[in-house]
Amino acid sequence: MAEDHKTIRMIVQRQDEPEAQPYEEEFEIPYRKNMNVISALMEIRRNPVNAKGEQTTPVYWDMGCLEEVCGACSMVINGKAMQSCTALIDQLEQPVRLEPMKTFPVMRDLAVDRSRMFDSLKKVKAWVPIDGTYDLGEGPRMPESKRQWAYELSKCMTCGVCLEACPNVNSNSDFIGPAALSQVRLFNSHPTGSYHKAERMDALLDDGGLQNCGNSQNCVQACPKGIPLTTSIAALNREATLHSFKSFFGSDYHH
């Protein structure tokens, strides 16, 4: 078949270690049908020779589930942050340019350290506490319509694409980013999670919190899971207005 001789041109931004200077390296990879970016990277790993024919080190990247639910393989592909597992070679313009998501510290080549996102989730208490000194039993039931709505928010895989797209998440700011904000809305609307709503709101309005959103609304466009991030942000803004009024004018008890 004619297709056997086709090649894929790929330009990868490489970086040998966290503090090293990044550089570009071009590769030519034999084409196969239905390839994704990861299978192309695996081809480089199998035969680490660049386009000039020189032997090189294999390109390093992170991956996990290979079905767009873990978020680990996110990178900037042709200028847009997305998951490399669902980025299909046939749908990409060539040469395919791969860069790490530079909003995060680059560890090596395309792998970044997304710790700041997990720290943010801890900061805003994005969980439902169920541990106690006794069996807390079953929580209250959730209406089906609400469960379906909450399921959409729960699709967040902390991949970091929304932070990469956000102009207010950068080295000048400590904005926690859209993902953690939306998780606050998810856990605040959970029947048991709502017990800790006020605590989450306090954490949310701390430095680097909700107020850093500048409404560029890139996050909702970039989110691979279609999570209504900007709706979550606006809803939290309303909640924050009420919350701050309550804590300033209200009683010593606010929930």
Binding site: P167, N168, N218, Q221
Partner: peptide
């Protein structure tokens, strides 16, 4: 202060609201 903490990225994300963000 707010204006200079942003890092505009219109070239990569040329959406309407991102334009408004920059123009603001």
């Amino acid at each position: 202060y707010i204006a200079f903490t942003a890092k505009n990225n219109l070239r990569r994300y040329g959406f309407f609201r991102n334009w408004m963000f920059m123009l603001q």
